[in-house]
Design a protein around this nucleic acid. Structure first.
Lengths: 120, 120
DNA sequence: ATTATAGTTGAATGCGTATTCAATTGTCAA
DNA sequence: TTGACAATTGAATACGCATTCAACTATAAT
């Protein structure tokens, strides 16, 4: 029972299982969107920014000092966090103050934290 | 009040806030471990493998067909998932059958799924 | 107006990693 | 023991992305 998908380099061992799983699994678009979302938390800098903002509103300069990278780096990452609707900001004079757009961020990373910190 | 950290390219605007956040935020090691953990879910292939294994035990060949990549690619990714203690396996003849090591994986990604799928 | 500082932006760089290919191991069947 | 196939492994490749640098905008103070 040879694989019907051309680029595959192997036979299907259990056709029925593959078919069944294919029906139940989310489509590729959705998988990608979810992966995309988790990509944000997979970067130490972004994670640190989010964690910091969960503690206190902060400006770009403060975040740069805290994370120990350039303001530019922080600004680039904040842009990504903005696009993901995870942070919001308010301008005050020369400063721009960032904060979490909603407080579910901590909840989201909670599961992962529990899972990882148990092993340290 | 100039920044005391050498590699920083800016002044500290709010010294007190930075100090306070520095005390409350987890240390870099921990942040990195958490980020490392989420890195697993940030890859479509790994996510699809985990999701599939949550539905049914599968062998490498089946997974390759399902995900539409080479057996080699699957094997490499499974190695990473093994090292993260997310999957376990049993050998039967020429085949190696993989399954989730515990069923909290679905729970872990649940939060992210809710957060992302609401916007599709 | 001029200077200084906060923040943003785009280009360039470098690193991490997912994938493929080729070679190898292990197991079963003939 | 030989051939076929599942799975693993290491090397090579290619791509994505985080960071820095440099240039620019914007705002405030003198």
């Amino acid at each position: 029972m040879v694989c019907k998908i051309e680029m595959c380099d192997c036979n299907v061992i259990h056709q029925e299982i593959v078919e069944a799983v294919k029906e139940q699994i989310p489509e590729d678009n959705r998988i990608s969107v979810i992966a995309e979302f988790y990509k944000i938390f997979s970067d130490s800098t972004k994670l640190k920014i989010l964690w910091a903002l969960d503690i206190s509103e902060m400006c770009v300069c403060d975040l740069a000092v805290l994370v120990n990278v350039t303001k530019s780096a922080i600004s680039h990452q904040l842009k990504i966090l903005k696009e993901a609707n995870l942070v919001k900001f308010r301008k005050e004079g020369k400063n721009v103050y960032y904060s979490l757009s909603d407080n579910c961020v901590k909840e989201i990373i909670e599961k992962g934290v529990i899972h990882t910190l148990n092993k340290m």
